[in-house]
């Protein structure tokens, strides 16, 4: 009886998994076949003669390639480093000191960031960047994006930090170690998986960003891939499927690689779960 039940539930799980896989994978299937098809349509078809021609054409577009492999890496990499570093320090500070109403505080900042992240914010952000002489610089984009992403990053981080035991730190404190050393040598190694999650999250957000770069950047040399994608539109303003799909494929690849890397190295999971 028990045996039968477990076989049954195992079968159920397999079916459920297949349904989930179909749900999550089917919409992306076109991205896997279209770039390798000589005459791309909107249907998914395994090409008889898979070709790399589309990629060759894409790689000839210097503007788009620089956007993807230079500008995007700078913007997303920069935002990732700054968000991860600043959020980790801040959440550690929040976690290890008694600050009245810190949860409310972080939540209110998140509400603010929902306003500042929207289209209504474009004029203030532009003028701010202008007065700080940050127009048409990657630094400007990174700083503005960091400001917007920080509250949610701290919100996620602080529970990673809360969940690690404090006894080591307290012991180290007794031994006379300074706070920064305690953070570096004891706390940081323990929260590293959390840092990895927040870093990826920040990277992904900055990698796909469109509105802020359009408002803040000017020269084609500095534009990210989300803008460069439009250079694969035809005269009539419609996407050229062969090239757009190939570029979109390249555009999506790095985040996948980064995720797989981090997942393999640290395990991509919300360490201990975020608590209320």
């Amino acid at each position: 009886m028990r045996n039968y039940e477990s076989t049954f539930s195992k079968l159920l799980l397999v079916l459920f998994s297949l349904a989930c896989m179909a749900f999550f994978a089917l919409p992306l299937l076109w991205l896997l076949t279209a770039p390798f098809t000589p005459m791309t349509t909107l249907s998914v078809e395994i090409p008889d003669n898979p070709t790399l021609d589309n990629f060759r054409t894409v790689f000839k577009n210097e503007f788009a390639i620089r956007a993807l492999f230079r500008n995007n890496l700078i913007i997303a990499g920069g935002a990732m480093l700054s968000v991860a570093a600043v959020a980790t320090l801040a959440s550690y500070g929040l976690s290890r000191t008694r600050i009245v109403g810190r949860d409310i505080l972080v939540y209110v900042l998140m509400l603010f960031s929902s306003v500042v992240g929207g289209t209504a914010a474009m004029v203030p952000l532009f003028l701010l960047a202008y007065h700080l002489k940050l127009i048409d610089t990657h630094v400007g984009v990174i700083l503005v994006m960091t400001g917007g992403l920080l509250p949610a990053a701290i919100f996620m981080m602080r529970d990673f930090v809360d969940s690690i035991p404090r006894s080591y730190e307290e012991a180290a404190l007794v031994c006379g170690a300074g706070p920064f050393r305690i953070f570096r040598d004891i706390a940081f190694p323990l929260v590293r998986p959390g840092v990895a999650v927040v870093a990826i999250w920040a990277f992904v957000n900055a990698w796909g960003a469109f509105l802020i770069p359009v408002v803040m950047l000017r020269s084609p040399e500095n534009m990210p891939a989300s803008v460069a994608l439009y250079s694969f539109y035809s005269e009539a303003g419609t996407p050229v499927h062969t090239l757009v799909s190939a570029y979109a494929f390249l555009y999506g690849l790095p985040v996948l690689v980064l995720y797989l890397l981090v997942n393999w190295r640290f395990g991509f999971r919300f360490f201990g779960g975020i608590k209320s």
């Binding site: 920069g78 480093l81 700054s82 570093a85 600043v86 630094v139 990174i142 960091t146 500095n222």
Partner: peptide
Amino acid sequence: MISTLSAAFA
């Protein structure tokens, strides 16, 4: 450091 990190690239 963060602020100047990519300033070099511009």
